[in-house]
Every structure is written in structure tokens, then in C-alpha cells.
């Protein structure tokens, strides 16, 4: 950065108070529009939760109201009253968490390899990881079906976990590169001078430093595994005890007579854990994703 900038920075610090005053009307306008946009973006979510609480018949009313006078828990009762709903929830959690943990570990190793080493085929590999994300998942269902059958995994949660790990890996590696790169090399050298072994550096120094980045990338693996119904629909053929939440949601999608209340209640139940997860990691997510550009 040029000295010019430094001078400007000093000037800025001197007049900060004035500037704030001048800018106020603009900022007010920006804040109002931010709030309005937030409301618009949140409206579909609000409508989802609202529809879940509306009593039967009110959803399909020709006078849609953005409120309900008689909130009812009937839709939620239908959702929770489903066979083994708790089981589905648990299954979804098992699938999503296994995918998150395993793919984070594998991606961490791979990202370390492609950022902290120079070797032949490095660029080729990077492009391959990118290409891997382009594979249309839907089209792969058939070959994967046979593969899971040959592994004897059909009808088990394993048939959901394995493909999801594979599909979330390329993106995770691609995103994690920035975080691994952000760790100063001096740190690595210092560690070796102190006599740390390779694996000690990897797991006790690098890993904790990259952890915020892992959290940020995990969000993606978590959502894709949690929300998936394509694999669940195709691979869990007949064993309902291995079903996941999206399958429980699909039950309400009868094309002849869709149970909108049930769909919306089930969706609310499905969205809340992700939202909670999001809110918990929000700070990390932002600082984490920011880390990706700090060069």
C-alpha cells in the first residue's frame, strides 16, 4: 500500500466525527432499506411458520390473511404423531453430523496438501476438485444405486452418508484452501524449530487455527446432507426405520390433496435446527469466510 493511503488514513482519523454527522441521512436511508429488505426476505419464512400455525381450512382460504386469530398446533401434532418421528430426526442428525465431521477432516488434509505443498498435478487436481462439483447429482443416482447395492448399504444410513461425503468434499476443499493459506508460514517454521513433529504441527497447531474455516465450510455440508431427499428417496427402499426427516416431509405432499399445514409444520421443524446452527456460528461464518480473502 502506498504512503499516500497512510496519509489519507491519518486525515480520516482526524475528521471522523464530522464525517459521521454529514453522513447521517444517508445511513438512515440505508438502514431503513436494510430493514425493509430483511422483512421481504423473511416474509416467505414468516408465511411458512404462519401456515404451520393456521387452523385447517384457513390456508386454502381465498382471503389470505398475514395473521391468524386462532393459532393451532394441529399441524405440528400431525408431524410429531407420525410413526417414529423422533427416529427420523435422529437419523437425519446422524447422517448430517457424520458427513460434517468426516468430510471436514478429509477436506482439511486435502486442503493442506494443495496449499502448503507444490507438487506435480497440483493445478490439475485443483481443477478436478472444481469439476467434481459440476457433476449433476440427479444423473448419478443410478450408478450410485448399484454401487450402494454392491456395498450392501441400501436401506441403511450408510448409503446416505457415503455419497454425501463425496459430494460435499470438493466444495469443502475448495473453500478451505483460503483458511489454510492464511496461517503464516513463520508459525510452521517456528514449530519445527521447536522440534514439533509433522503430525503434531498438523493437528495441534494448524487444525485449531483453521477451525473457524472448518465451521464455515461445514455449514454447506450440513445443509446439503440435512435437506437431501433425493438419495433418501432412492436408497432407503423399504426400511422405514432408516428414513430421514425430508422423507417425513414428503408424506404430506400428496399431489391430490397436499396437506399444506403438515408440509409447513414439518418444514418449520426441519429449518429450525439449521437456523439455530447458523445463528450459533454466524460470527464464525463471517470471520471465517473473510479469512478466505486475507492473502
Amino acid at each position: 500500500m502506498s504512503g499516500n493511503v497512510v496519509q489519507r488514513v491519518q486525515r480520516v482519523q482526524g475528521v471522523r466525527g464530522v464525517r459521521r454527522f454529514v453522513r447521517r441521512p444517508w445511513r438512515l436511508a440505508a438502514e431503513v432499506s436494510a430493514l425493509v429488505i430483511a422483512a421481504v426476505v423473511a416474509f416467505p419464512l414468516y408465511w411458512m411458520v404462519l401456515s404451520a400455525f393456521k387452523p385447517a381450512g384457513e390456508i386454502e382460504s381465498s382471503e389470505p390473511r398475514p395473521w391468524t386469530l386462532e393459532p393451532s398446533l394441529d399441524s405440528f401434532r400431525r408431524v410429531f404423531g407420525q410413526q417414529e418421528f423422533g427416529r427420523y430426526f435422529l437419523n437425519s442428525l446422524v447422517v448430517a453430523c457424520s458427513v460434517v465431521v468426516v468430510s471436514a477432516l478429509i477436506a482439511f488434509l486435502a486442503a493442506t496438501a494443495v496449499t502448503r505443498f507444490r507438487f506435480r498435478f497440483r493445478t490439475t487436481l485443483l481443477i478436478m476438485f472444481l469439476v467434481a462439483q459440476m457433476v449433476p447429482v440427479e444423473a448419478l443416482t443410478i450408478p450410485l444405486f448399484f454401487q450402494m447395492r454392491d456395498f450392501g448399504l441400501l436401506n441403511t444410513l450408510g448409503s446416505l452418508i457415503l455419497p454425501h461425503i463425496a459430494f460435499s468434499l470438493p466444495f469443502a476443499i475448495w473453500m478451505l484452501r483460503g483458511f489454510v493459506k492464511a496461517v503464516p508460514e513463520a508459525l510452521e517454521e517456528a514449530a519445527y524449530i521447536d522440534g514439533a513433529s509433522r503430525s503434531r504441527f498438523l493437528w495441534q497447531i494448524l487444525f485449531p487455527l483453521v477451525f473457524p474455516g472448518l465451521v464455515a465450510t461445514s455449514v454447506f455440508s450440513f445443509i446439503s446432507a440435512w435437506n437431501d431427499f433425493l438419495f433418501a428417496k432412492s436408497f432407503i427402499i423399504s426400511d422405514t426405520s432408516q428414513s430421514t426427516l425430508p422423507m417425513a416431509l414428503l408424506v404430506f405432499y400428496k399431489p391430490d390433496d397436499p396437506d399444506w399445514g403438515g408440509v409447513m409444520a414439518a418444514s418449520t421443524v426441519m429449518t429450525i435446527p439449521v437456523l439455530v446452527f447458523f445463528v450459533l456460528v454466524q460470527r464464525r461464518l463471517v470471520s471465517g469466510l473473510g479469512g478466505a480473502v486475507k492473502d
Binding site: 444405486f145 450392501g152 441400501l154 436401506n155 432412492s234 427402499i237
Partner: peptide, 24 residues
């Protein structure tokens, strides 16, 4: 007994043909 949704029946039944082990 399992009651399967009519709209996904084609896929389910084809899948069952493809994997005799989990077929009804």
C-alpha cells in the same frame, strides 16, 4: 405392511426390482 405414496410408486417399485434384497 407399508403404505407407499402413489406419486413415488414408480421409482420405489423399480428400485425394488433392482435390489431384490430390500424388495417386498
Amino acid at each position: 405392511i407399508e403404505y407407499i405414496p402413489v406419486e413415488t410408486r414408480a421409482q420405489r417399485i423399480k428400485a425394488a426390482f433392482n435390489d431384490p434384497k430390500s424388495a417386498p
